[in-house]
């Protein structure tokens, strides 16, 4: 059993709440027409997005999917800079050039969100190759969704990572839909992790809404990869409450399905855990939630007050 300190539990609960508020606030801004372009929200996926990141060690790297805000908050990115990027501001992580889908903090090991489904797999192999080559002892955590596991790059990457024993953990958030396509319509096996067998690497399917299970499994997988034993494939079954993006009318799913999953909400489950185990007082729990909410309000304020990029920046940073 992995020891959970109070400090870690606090961080877990705070970040999951921060992620939820971030997405809800962004949803609100989108519906008010305050966001140019689209956003991909991961409400409901807070445990599967945040927990693997909290299992990382200092110096580990992460590559994120197109639905990356929750993952980014888990990794420790600054919500002010994230929100500013979502609003296209110069103070954002990418100076307003990437937007919601491409938040990154490369210097600190965050290799960014990726607008190409499956685009991050082989980038992660490359980042892992660097760690192996320089013997850094660091691991790359590669996030992707269920849909991404049907791309060629998924299979090429798992094979390459397996034969070269690259220190990478492929973490699949199976949120049940590839855009509108239900997973049973696009994958003909029960568990995506079964695909690991074809590459002779460990594969695990877990409840993606169970914060503790996700954290423990990610910790073990990262330890395995760090020990030089090669990659691990994890599938976390979870659910996204929002549509694929802002234009999604969600005609492909039954509202009852959503309600069933909301009963298994990752934040609720963690709150129950905290109450049952009397880790924090009710007051402390409320305080954490409030602090998380305020941090997002402040992020919106920061973003809205931030300047637009100057037109002269258009030509900057095409080449190094």
């Amino acid at each position: 059993m992995i020891e959970l300190s109070e400090e870690l539990l606090l961080r877990m609960y705070y970040k999951m709440n921060q992620a939820r508020y971030f997405e809800e606030k962004l949803d609100e801004l989108v519906s008010k027409g305050k966001v140019h372009g689209t956003v991909h929200l991961a409400i409901g996926q807070e445990a599967s997005g945040v927990m693997p990141c909290l299992a990382l060690e200092e110096g580990d790297l992460v590559s994120m999917s197109h639905r990356s805000h929750v993952q980014a908050i888990g990794f420790g990115l600054d919500v002010n800079l994230m929100m500013a990027e979502c609003l296209g501001k110069y103070t954002g992580y990418c100076k307003g050039k990437g937007g919601s889908m491409h938040i990154a903090d490369v210097e600190n090991g965050n290799l960014g969100g990726n607008g190409i489904v499956g685009g991050g797999f082989n980038l992660s192999c490359g980042a892992a190759l660097t760690q192996k080559y320089h013997n850094t002892g660091k691991v790359v955590l590669c996030f992707a969704g269920d849909g991404a596991t049907n791309t060629g790059s998924f299979h090429e990457s798992l094979n390459l990572a397996s034969i070269w024993k690259l220190p990478v953990v492929f973490f699949i958030e199976n949120n049940q839909y590839g855009m509108s396509n239900p997973v049973e319509n696009h994958i003909n096996i029960e568990n995506i992790s079964d695909r690991s067998e074809a590459y002779n690497i460990p594969g695990l399917t877990i409840d993606g809404n169970d914060f503790l299970g996700v954290y423990n499994t990610a910790t073990k997988a990262l330890r395995y990869a760090r020990a030089g034993k090669g990659p691990v494939l994890i599938e976390a079954k979870t659910y996204r409450y929002s549509g694929h993006s802002k234009s999604d009318k969600q005609l492909y799913r039954d509202k009852r399905e959503l309600i069933e999953w909301q009963k298994k909400d990752p934040l609720l489950k963690m709150k129950e855990y905290l109450r049952e185990n009397r880790v924090f007082t009710e007051k402390q729990i409320l305080k954490m939630e409030e602090e998380a909410r305020v941090s997002i309000e402040q992020a919106v304020e920061f973003a809205q007050k931030s300047p637009q990029p100057e037109l002269t920046t258009i030509l900057e940073d095409v080449y190094a």
């Binding site: 290799l111 797999f121 082989n122 490359g126 980042a127 090429e156 390459l160």
Partner: peptide, 14 residues
């Protein structure tokens, strides 16, 4: 795809 992508990932990280 893995050759080029791995090169990109490796290049980005040093």
């Amino acid at each position: 795809g893995a050759i080029v992508g791995t090169a990109v990932g490796a290049a980005t990280t040093g």
